[in-house]
Design a protein around this nucleic acid. Structure first.
Lengths: 219, 219
DNA sequence: ATAAGTCTGTTGTAATTCCAACGAAAAGAG
DNA sequence: CTCTTTTCGTTGGAATTACAACAGACTTAT
């Protein structure tokens, strides 16, 4: 386990917690490490889980099967990242997804009920842990809400303007860089890349904005 | 304050907590009640907040102004419901929204940092409170993620099938009721009501599903 | 029972988006 | 520098959606 402490220090859930406290913390949480072979199921859809995972090595994928059996990959989780924390914390009865190891992997499991109960040793980092977890889930929440605000607009033009004006507000100026290339932006907004490119040009011609590569300027 | 205990018992954050424990809980959390007149600002966009609110009486609205000053109402919060909990827990520096009282209102404010720190009196309901909060934020998370899965599909047909097959899976059968009328479903999926109605008919003609009012059956 | 209002499905036209293809510019590799 | 790959903007035709308008079924109020 010790060999993963360097990794664990970078995990958002443990932010602000001393490396020397990691060992007692993990035993306090009854954290357990499990190894999986390539292709093995980590969490099975339809079942419930009180545990969430942290990938120590390898990779897992969150996959979903629809009514007709079509598979879609919702996310790939690399070392240092959490998965299934929302399902565990929300006490979901039936997982709507499967979690599969895409390579040989080592997973650290934590029972989310252990997060909330104060440990008998009254470890000081426990409250930090709870704050971190609330932080992680809330941030994701805000991120998702904002994405919905953009994508629920009807036209490509409106989606672009909603996104770009939010970026401008976030940056505090009308001139700002975006963290996407065109294809990524199109995927994020759920529109066609080429149609989006055309719409950007039209917005420029209409005098609404200017752009050069990833730098935009609202007028 | 006591007159609101009936209401507080129904608040999701206090689920599973005895009414007799509410008073000590609120003082432990340093909860504060503030009154607002109609039209007053409860939380100002651009500032930060460590506090989240619970509406005791009246109503508040979450409103957003875009780059061009256009106002949009994101939500209306009625008595018994929380607001700004994600922003508070995520420790957002600049609120991207304003919260306005639409009528004369009474708001109970709680500092989310108080949630995580164990109180000196070691009150037993504190861990329940944390679990409830994690629960609330995580559930919202799952709800938002699912909505994005539906709306990010490109065509009305795909959106409908994604939504309906998820409902079928949730219900455990291929015959189920949906909690929306047509207009609400169209709004939820970000599509046109009439186009959606037409697509539903086409899906029926194609032998993919059957429906009568709010009851659907996938074939 | 009548009348008013709401919900739903249908249709035709206009507008928008999707898709495939292509060329130019920029970035990277050898 | 040259060649290759990636990224981006443009275009035209096919497909899809938006919009407006309307009719029938159903609900509610009087």
């Amino acid at each position: 386990m010790k060999k993963y402490f360097e990794l664990l220090k970078t995990v958002s859930l443990f932010k602000g917690i001393e490396e020397s406290n990691l060992q007692p913390l993990l035993s306090c949480l009854s954290a357990k490490t499990v190894c999986y072979e390539k292709g093995q199921t980590v969490l099975l859809g339809g079942e419930s889980t009180k545990l969430f995972g942290i990938v120590l090595s390898g990779q897992v994928q969150i996959v979903q099967y629809d009514y007709y059996g079509n598979r879609s990959i919702l996310a790939s989780i690399d070392p240092g990242n959490l998965f299934a924390e929302s399902f565990a914390c929300a006490e979901i009865k039936k997982l709507p997804v499967n979690v599969i190891a895409t390579t040989e992997s080592e997973i650290l499991f934590i029972d989310c009920r252990r997060l909330a109960v104060p440990c008998t040793k009254a470890c000081g980092f426990h409250s930090k842990l709870i704050q971190n977890m609330l932080n992680i889930v809330s941030m994701k929440n805000i991120y998702l809400t904002q994405k919905i605000e953009f994508t629920s607009k009807r036209t490509t033009r409106e989606k672009l303007l909603a996104y770009l004006s939010a970026e401008a507000q976030k940056a505090g100026t009308n001139r700002f860089d975006i963290p996407f290339n065109r294809q990524e932006l199109a995927d994020y907004l759920s529109v066609e890349r080429s149609a989006m490119s055309a719409e950007l040009s039209k917005l420029r011609d209409d005098g609404v904005l200017n752009f050069h590569k990833n730098q935009f300027k609202l007028l």
